[in-house]
Simulated assay, not measured.
Amino acid sequence: MMRGIDHVGMTVPDMEEATTFFKQAFDAEVCYDVQRPEQEPMQGEEVEQQLGLPSGKTIIHMRLLQIAKGPTLELFQLGTPTDQEPARISDLGLHHFAIYVDDMQEATQRFKDAGGTLLSAPHPLAGVEDGPRNRGVYGVTPWGSLIELIAYPDGIDYPDGSEAKRWTPPA
Rank of each mutant, 00 (worst) to 15 (best):
L51Q: 02
I59D: 00
D33R: 09
F26D: 08
G52E: 00
T20Q: 14
E40K: 11
Y32F: 14
Y32C: 09
M62F: 02
Q43R: 15
K57I: 11
F26W: 03
M62T: 12
H61Y: 13
Q35E: 01
Q49E: 14
C31V: 12
D33G: 01
F22K: 07
Q39G: 13
G44L: 07
E29V: 14
I59Q: 00
I59S: 00
I67R: 08
E46K: 07
L53R: 03
Q49A: 15
E46Q: 11
A25M: 02
M42V: 15
G56V: 10
L64V: 13
P54T: 08
H61M: 06
M42H: 08
Q49H: 09
T20S: 13
M62Y: 02
K23F: 07
L64D: 04
Q24Y: 04
I60Q: 14
L51H: 06
M15K: 05
S55P: 05
A68E: 13
Q49S: 12
T58F: 03
P54I: 13
T19P: 05
V47K: 01
P37S: 11
E17N: 09
G52W: 01
E48T: 06
E48W: 05
V34T: 09
M42L: 15
K23M: 14
E40H: 10
R36P: 00
V30N: 02
H61N: 13
L65A: 10
A25T: 03
E46V: 12
F21A: 09
G52D: 02
Q43S: 14
T19W: 07
T58H: 01
T20M: 09
P41Q: 00
E46F: 11
V30K: 07
V30R: 04
V47W: 02
L51D: 03
Q50V: 12
T58K: 08
G56F: 04
V30Y: 04
D27F: 08
Q66L: 10
A68R: 15
K23L: 08
Q35I: 09
Q35P: 00
L53A: 06
K57C: 10
P54H: 13
E40C: 04
A18L: 02
T20V: 14
R63I: 02
E45Q: 13
T20G: 13
A18D: 03
E16C: 04
M62D: 03
H61I: 06
Y32H: 13
E40S: 12
Q39S: 09
E29A: 11
G56Q: 07
